[in-house]
Design a protein around this nucleic acid. Structure first.
Lengths: 224, 224
DNA sequence: CCCGGTCGGTGACCCAGGTCACACAAGTCC
DNA sequence: GGACTTGTGTGACCTGGGTCACCGACCGGG
């Protein structure tokens, strides 16, 4: 794919860009570039510097915090059409990444350099509102995350994760280990809970995947 | 105190305001007003609407989330010279309050109506940077909060809370109950831990207050 | 000075969930 | 068809911390 094509695809994926004035869009087109991450590659590390505003074209990356003990909490995942709101946090605050990120699969990004970002933020109300939109969404996501970790029992969080991970047919292609990581627990515990649910006919477990059989019931488990 | 005096005090407390252009400052002066909350009064409720950008002149308010079970997590407290960054979240996202807030003591606020806020955000880069500054600070606060609740054992969180609550002389005027609420635990547990620390000579407990005796050691307990 | 509210201390108990130590089943790579 | 790797099932056990049920101490007001 030529660079020109990439630019078109990018604008296609992010309709907001069409709301920019021609002059601003021109600047964006002129400075954007398109990094690619292989599966497992580190998008950025904790405390890293942020040189670009990142938008996801293809693939998926996982953003999380890790404790000294090696346990993790998932903050969010970004897929196609999403922006990595943590880059916004960095760029706006002038600080460093408050979390780390790795690509779960091969991931293609669009990246606007800081200078462009700053320029557009200062000049374009349309760009500002696009950026802030995602940023405030991140913020409210953090609040629900907070009371998840603070209050929700593990079963609840696991149910939600499972539902979030499932494709339309109800199949979640994840290992127990990955689920455990996402919710900040350990494999054994996840296996056990999954076992109970399979027993109860809520789900069916396969090697490397979980199939949701009784979705409504699982959703109930995610709430209560 | 006359309203004019209040305006002066307000500008005094928030030096940023002097960075506004005369025209913008004029708008702000013309629309600001000064609500007062009694101790224990609700500043706003969960899911409430936000009609003003709030800045704290005197007093202190506590912002927290509550679970159905009635347990709480403290998000942050705002004192004199602080802004309530959650109002920013509401105003920017157009949504409702993601948490609730009550005044711990008699609290005087300065309030800019939404319309003024929007106007200044659109027009004044200085105002924007002031607002965003606090907002990004909130965001990074949330990250440390997240791994506090996700990873830190209770002792650690209690130690930190205690240190945060202590005045320069090392006296924290709080009841065990309040400490427990802040860290999302219960009184008995807090009492027990405090008991151990008193035993070990780290602190001294009085009715309604805790005195920190061995600060460095307590700080260590807050980290490890 | 007594009486009701607020604080604090303590023991008995319980439970979610983490840890450890395996055993085994499915792929996969020669 | 070994031999190695990756994912899973399971039991025994431990512990932080929440729950319950008290009691006693202090404090301020009538």
């Amino acid at each position: 794919m030529t660079d020109a094509q990439k630019v078109e695809r990018w604008i296609d994926r992010f309709p907001l860009l069409q709301a920019l004035s021609p002059a601003h869009l021109q600047i964006a087109r002129g400075t954007v570039h398109f990094p690619v991450l292989d599966a497992g590659a580190i998008a950025y590390e904790l405390d890293g510097e942020c040189a670009n505003y990142l938008m996801c074209l293809e693939g998926r990356t996982r953003i999380f915090r890790m404790s000294e003990g090696g346990r993790e909490v998932l903050i969010y995942k970004v897929g196609p059409g999403g922006t990595c709101a943590l880059t916004t946090q960095c760029l706006l605050s002038g600080g460093n990444f408050p979390a780390q990120s790795v690509a779960e699969e091969r991931t293609e990004l669009a990246a606007l350099p800081v200078s462009t970002f700053q320029h557009l933020m200062g000049e374009s109300a349309a760009f500002r509102s696009f950026v802030m939109d995602d940023y405030t969404r991140l913020m409210s996501g953090l609040f629900t995350l907070i009371d998840q970790v603070a209050f929700a029992p593990l079963k609840q969080r696991l149910a939600q994760r499972l539902l979030a991970e499932a494709d339309p047919r109800g199949v979640a292609a994840v290992t127990h280990q990955k689920l455990a990581d996402d919710i900040g627990s350990v494999r054994e515990v996840v296996s056990r809970i999954l076992g109970q649910w399979a027993e109860a006919g809520l789900i069916e477990v396969r090697r490397g995947a979980v199939e949701i059989v009784d979705r409504p019931c699982l959703e109930a488990a995610g709430r209560r």
